[in-house]
Every structure is written in structure tokens, then in C-alpha cells.
């Protein structure tokens, strides 16, 4: 097995450090959804953000976060507000957990 370079390791820790920030962002969306619902523009923004998270988290080997955000992104149009809120909560917890 090939050892990881210092640079790669540095990128990984930088990504890990960004996770609490990402969790805070999800918290913000969760709040919006539970207090009147995310706006239409907000939904597009969230979808595109989840798309990126699915890609980047996977690249940095946070597979669960990647899979979860991908599936959330794809199922978003079919979810009730309550379901969306509960999944956002789960994502927030996943991000927080990974940040530790």
C-alpha cells in the first residue's frame, strides 16, 4: 500500500476542519425548513450544495455522508417537509460526528 503524502494528509485535515462549518449550514437549513419552509430558490441552492457535498465527502472518504447527501439530493422532490427536516437533522449529526 502506498503511503499518503503529507500534502494529501494536509488536504484531508483541512477538509475535516471544514465539517463543523458545513454542519452549521445544514443546521441553518433545518431551521428554515421547520419554521415555514425553505424557499424555492433555497431548495435549488440546497440541492446543488448536497450535490457538491456528495462528491467532496466521498473524495475525502466520508462515504456515509457522501451517500446520504446523494440520496437526499435525489429524493428531495418527493419528501414531505417533515421528512426533509428529519433528514437534514440526520445529515447535521453525521457531519458533526465526522468532525470529531
Amino acid at each position: 500500500m502506498k503511503a499518503e503524502s503529507d500534502q494529501v494528509r494536509a488536504l484531508r485535515s483541512r477538509y475535516k476542519e471544514s465539517l463543523p462549518e458545513k454542519a452549521a449550514l445544514v443546521r441553518e437549513w433545518h431551521l428554515q425548513e421547520t419554521s415555514g419552509g425553505i424557499s424555492e430558490a433555497g431548495v435549488d441552492e440546497l440541492s446543488s450544495w448536497l450535490h457538491k457535498l456528495a462528491g467532496s465527502a466521498g473524495m475525502y472518504e466520508y462515504q456515509e455522508i457522501s451517500d446520504f447527501s446523494r440520496s437526499l439530493m435525489q429524493s428531495m422532490p418527493d419528501l414531505s417537509s417533515q421528512e426533509l427536516a428529519s433528514r437534514l437533522k440526520k445529515l447535521e449529526l453525521l457531519l458533526e460526528g465526522a468532525a470529531k
Binding site: S5, Q7, L11, R12, Y15, S18, K52, G55, S56, M59
Partner: peptide, 16 residues
Amino acid sequence: EDDPDIAALLKLLLVE
């Protein structure tokens, strides 16, 4: 690639 995290890692891995 617009995501800086992905771009940085992928670039580095390819360069390596």
C-alpha cells in the same frame, strides 16, 4: 471543477 476541496485533492493525487 468548482468545488475547491475536490479540485485540490484530485489535482494533487493526479500530480502525484
